[in-house]
Amino acid sequence: MSDPTAPPLPPSRPLRPEGLAGFEGRPAAVSGRARDPVNPPMIRHWCEAMGDRHPAYSGPDPVAPPTMLQAWIMGGLSGHGPRGGRADAYDRLLGLLDRAGYTAVVATDCEQEYLRPLRPGDELTFDAVIETVSPLKHTRLGAGHFVTTRTEIRTAGALVGTHRFRILKYAPRPKPGKAAPGPAADEPRPQRPRPVINRDNAGFWEGVAAGQLLIQRCAACAELRFPWLPGCGRCGSPEWTAVRASGAGRVFSYVVMHHPPFPAFDPPYAVGLVELAEGVRMISNLIGTEPGRVRIGMRAELEFLQVDAGLRLPVFRVLPDGADA
């Protein structure tokens, strides 16, 4: 009998590309219906969690934040049931990958397009299609296939947005000392993923390299914002200046990561949403205490962690009760 706790081995043989390509263009969901109409309580909860105080999302005639697009059509912990419109082709594709040994899954990226604002009372329907299934790819997590679905979301028959979502179905690499041999003891430790640096956030990473945590301040209305964006979410102005944060904050929310294991990360570790003294919030690692001892409201102090020769990251040290932030 096989050991259910042993890590899965890589698939013994890859799937035929033409067999996977046959799923492209087939439906992943047909005539799905959101469980609830767009409603002000959910908008309020979202804005509180995101720290978004834009006046368009409150008041007597609010609109929903565009980035809530997927949230309205998610099934929740209990699932959609028959309202979700889940298509047989998508389940067959995932089952085929599971049986071939690609049993692990991780979301890799998503793209959204917004065509008009959503307002309370809008009832949403959606259809999804399997857009692409990649050939076998070799990643740091293991070998696997990228599966991309594209969802069209409508209200009263009119298209209001699209959501393209990509997952990796992969065979996890065995851990050292387990059922299959791991990397040699002298093999260099895998690097942590590199941040994506573009024209909108390059100034932030330049500040990190200089040992400064920089946040943006709108030049028109003085609104502080983080993460870095090309324009002000409050007044829309594209003009801004950079402000150096004090580094003091509190844990607003957190999660302790246990699974899935990623190369270069050693679970369990705590990831927190830290509310800075300046009022903005940012996500980062929490250090300085056991992950299980982190609590909401604990004070946190900025540090810069030199992860490797090419990567420096801002992290937050959780302070014990009575310590000065």
Rank of each mutant, 00 (worst) to 15 (best):
G142T: 04
S78G: 13
L286R: 02
M298A: 05
G231I: 06
R234A: 11
F204P: 00
V129P: 00
A323Q: 09
K175D: 15
V147R: 00
M257Q: 11
P268V: 11
D109S: 13
W240S: 05
G22V: 03
G25N: 05
D61T: 15
P227M: 12
A34M: 08
L118M: 04
G288P: 02
A185P: 05
L15R: 01
R281Q: 09
A270I: 13
S31V: 05
L224M: 13
D61M: 12
A264Y: 09
S2N: 12
H259Y: 15
A56G: 12
A89C: 10
V255Q: 05
D61F: 13
A34Q: 03
Q306P: 09
G249P: 00
L168Y: 03
A209S: 13
V38I: 10
G157P: 06
Y102H: 00
H54N: 09
A264I: 12
E123I: 07
A34H: 02
R119K: 05
P174A: 15
P291M: 14
E303A: 12
F146P: 01
A71G: 15
Q70Y: 09
A107C: 11
F226S: 03
A143N: 03
A245W: 00
L124A: 00
F23V: 03
A107M: 15
R116G: 04
T241S: 13
L276Q: 02
L213Y: 04
V147L: 05
M42R: 10
E301A: 15
A156C: 14
A220F: 12
